[in-house]
């Protein structure tokens, strides 16, 4: 998948899990948890579990991967890596 396609899917999951408007102008690759009030430590995990299911990832996010995610763009990169493996 291309990065933009991944980002579109991530926005869908964020809208559902976080209950936010996640349009292209609301969520970009530069968006971080501190930009979105609803994105706290618990919803972060729920978001990632939902993303694992959405992308049917064979290998789950590890704790170190979860800790390393700072921006939405980091998440796109990680999904890109996991879906191409």
């Amino acid at each position: 998948m291309r990065r933009e396609e991944i980002l579109v899917e991530i926005r869908d999951v964020m809208a559902d899990v976080l209950g936010i408007d996640a349009d292209a102008e609301d969520v970009t690759e530069a968006t971080t948890a501190s930009d979105i009030e609803e994105w706290d430590s618990l919803s972060h995990i729920r978001l990632l579990v939902a993303i694992e299911r959405k992308f049917k990832l064979r290998s789950r996010f590890t704790n170190s991967e979860i800790e390393s995610l700072k921006r939405v763009g980091d998440l796109v990169t990680l999904i890109e890596k996991k879906t191409s493996a």
Binding site: S41, I45, R46, V49, N63, E67
Partner: peptide, 10 residues
């Protein structure tokens, strides 16, 4: 425990 280590269960 941080929910990171329980995959969301508090």
């Amino acid at each position: 425990l941080s929910p990171m280590f329980t995959r969301g269960t508090m």
